[in-house]
Amino acid sequence: MSREGGFRAVWPWLLFAWLALVIWAAFLWAPAAANFKGQSSRIVFFHVPMAWVATVAFLGSCIASIRYLRRRNMEDDIRAEAANSLGLTFAVLATVTGSIFAKIMWGSYWNWDPRETSITFLLLIYAAYFALRAAIPDPERRATMAAVYSVLAFVTVPFLVFVVPRIYWSLHPDTFINTQGKIKMDSRMFQVFMASLAGFSVFAGWLYSIEVRLERIRRRRQQEELL
């Protein structure tokens, strides 16, 4: 076995160990932030990476969609679809973790805080993306329509995420998304947070590559009928 092959066999285990360490540190090593109720601040180590992965995935999908529209290469459609399903999954996880935090801090799972509103509509947009795909039987047309919708959707996202919360008053902690452009966090918390962010990013990238390969195989099987 080559050295590279060896690394490929080992790295998922390294990732597993890394994430296990992150989870341990998140609960036992990092301190709980003082101005949050009880232990609730620890959710930041999971909630923010989920939201981050979802955002990156949606951005990636938007880029793949633009590439599809320019080059008409089905590979880009596969990437866009895989990135969107990953983004949707992580957006659901971000919603669930956020909702748990809302229950502890503000006493209710859901109260239409601007951030909750914007993520709900993000979920709606990307669920609509898959509804659209399901409604078009022609693969070439499906790829184009989905790509265009993806671009339209991505353009409305900044309005939801940045403009709307400025108009409505928000309860959401402004640790990361704030007007001063600074991160407000204890140093030990910050280390765990960055480790978690890195871990989940790699994990998501791995899931993404699996999904792309799977979809490639599915489509190749359909293509084989043509030969």
Binding site: F121, L124, I125, A128, A131, L132, A135, I136, P137, R141, M145, V148, Y149, L152, A153, T156, F159, L160, V163, V164, I167, Y168
Partner: peptide, 28 residues
């Protein structure tokens, strides 16, 4: 959105499903 859904099946439902999320910031 109408141009997109006109080429799909189940158009009536799809029109509002695709439009409303895009229109939400405008609505606000």
């Amino acid at each position: 959105v109408a141009a997109i859904i006109a080429r799909a099946m189940t158009r009536g439902a799809l029109f509002s499903v695709l439009s409303l999320p895009l229109l939400l910031p405008l609505l606000i």
